[in-house]
């Protein structure tokens, strides 16, 4: 369970301060599929980054399954990301020098998994996202939809409990976007907690719950 209380995030200092989040309180149950919508610049990514332990809030409390994430050291935070969180980005962020399988296996390698097991698990994961045949392909040879599926497979590699997706369909056409959405839904059905940021209200409507943000605050919630 994710629990946030009065999360405030400031960027910059002095006169240049941007208040990206202005006191967000939020509770997300395990296994929930949550969509976050809102205009560009309203703080959606900032919120997701804090959720994923990639950024720290300026003020407020954040507990994940009872653990105080804000109290973690850099090292603990890295471990938290590696073991609990799967992150999917709008820009995919695949490593260009690695094949699809190697990309998927990357978090496993950092977790100390051996080469043979990495290979096997990467295969299973790629199969899971329907890309078994692109095993050896480099990202440059994949379409946007395929890259995003590789990214999702990579996010799943360490069996995270929470999958965070920041506009995962933002760079994709509608058809591919729907495929990704369907995949996320499927993962959610299997028990994964999913938090997805999106512009697309149609996609957002497919979530269990929809949070609407504006100017650093939550202004509406729909179940």
């Amino acid at each position: 369970m994710i629990e946030m209380k009065e999360i405030v995030k400031h960027y910059g200092k002095g006169d240049n301060v941007t208040e990206a989040l202005k006191g967000i309180s939020l509770r997300i149950e395990n296994g929930e599929f949550t969509a976050i919508t809102g205009h560009s610049g309203c703080g959606k990514s900032t919120l997701l980054n804090i959720l994923g332990g990639m950024d720290r809030q300026t003020k407020g409390e954040y507990f994940c399954d009872g653990e105080d994430v804000s109290g973690m050291s850099e090292r603990e935070l890295a471990k938290f990301r590696n073991s609990h969180i799967g992150f999917v980005f709008q820009a995919f962020h695949l490593a260009g020098e690695l094949t699809a399988a190697e990309n998927v296996a990357l978090p496993l390698g950092y977790a100390g998994v051996g080469a043979k097991e990495r290979k096997e698990r990467a295969k299973v994961l790629l199969d899971r996202v329907g890309l078994a045949e692109k095993y050896k392909a480099y990202p440059a040879k994949l379409s946007g939809g395929e890259m995003q599926r590789v990214a999702i497979a990579r996010a799943l590699a360490n069996h995270p409990r929470i999958l965070l997706a920041d506009e995962p369909t933002g760079n994709l056409d509608h058809e591919n976007g729907e495929k990704i959405m369907a995949l996320l839904r499927e993962l959610n059905k299997e028990g994964m907690t999913v938090v997805m940021v999106t512009h697309d209200l149609e996609l957002a409507a497919m979530a269990d719950r929809c949070i609407h943000m504006a100017d650093g605050s939550i202004i509406a919630q729909k179940n």
Binding site: R75, A78, F80, N82, L106, Y110
Partner: peptide, 15 residues
């Protein structure tokens, strides 16, 4: 960038 991708995946500082 490549480092940031790895950090997002939770690579330890040592690695």
């Amino acid at each position: 960038y490549s480092m940031a991708v790895r950090m997002a995946l939770g690579i330890s500082r040592k690695s």
